[in-house]
């Protein structure tokens, strides 16, 4: 019934153009159409946050947005945050502080945490727990995730102070 439409989105700095039905969920556009498989599908019901991406400066669950809504937007996924050769301080901290076990929730966790630290560069433990409440982890008990984010914040703040 509904025809494919032409969409243009920017993902990790790269412009992508394609045809899709408006009802396609953004998480499927990213994973299956653009082969950007960092954002994961956990619950697919807006609860778990494994699909979290940054869209025009907002942390968004990509399972709860139609591709039509994302037309024209600038999207960052975990792939745009850092790679194996240039890990983001958050990625390094998650590795060093054992902030992951199975790793399934990690892309969403780190993507959300980048935005959290952008808005609040020196969060308390309580603020981290509140700010990360949209991301579920079934392995770690969250303790090491909080520790990782605190460590990354400290490192990022120290690096910032050193350049000032």
């Amino acid at each position: 019934m509904s025809k494919k439409q032409h969409y243009k989105i920017t993902v990790n700095g790269k412009e992508e153009e394609f045809l899709a039905e408006p009802r396609e969920l953004l998480i499927y556009t990213l994973r299956e159409r653009l082969n950007i498989t960092g954002p994961h599908i956990g619950c697919e019901t807006s609860h778990c946050g494994a699909c979290t991406v940054t869209i025009d400066g907002k942390s968004v669950k990509a399972c709860t947005m139609f591709v039509a809504q994302a037309d024209g937007k600038d999207i960052t996924t975990i792939e745009g945050i850092g790679g194996p050769d240039d890990l983001h301080p958050l990625q390094k901290a998650f590795k060093e502080h054992h902030g992951l076990q199975c790793g399934y929730c990690t892309p969403g966790m780190i993507t959300r945490a980048t935005k959290l630290l952008e808005e609040n560069p020196k969060p308390t433990e309580e603020e981290i727990r509140f700010g990360m409440a949209g991301n579920l982890c079934r392995c770690t008990g969250y303790q090491n995730i909080v520790k990782s984010i605190m460590a990354a914040a400290a490192e990022m703040n120290a690096a910032k102070e050193a350049t000032e």
Binding site: K58, K61, T64, M65, M132, A133, G134
Partner: peptide, 9 residues
């Protein structure tokens, strides 16, 4: 209300 991601939208 809800969680951070939901509150952005």
């Amino acid at each position: 209300i809800a969680d951070p991601q939901v509150r952005y939208m």
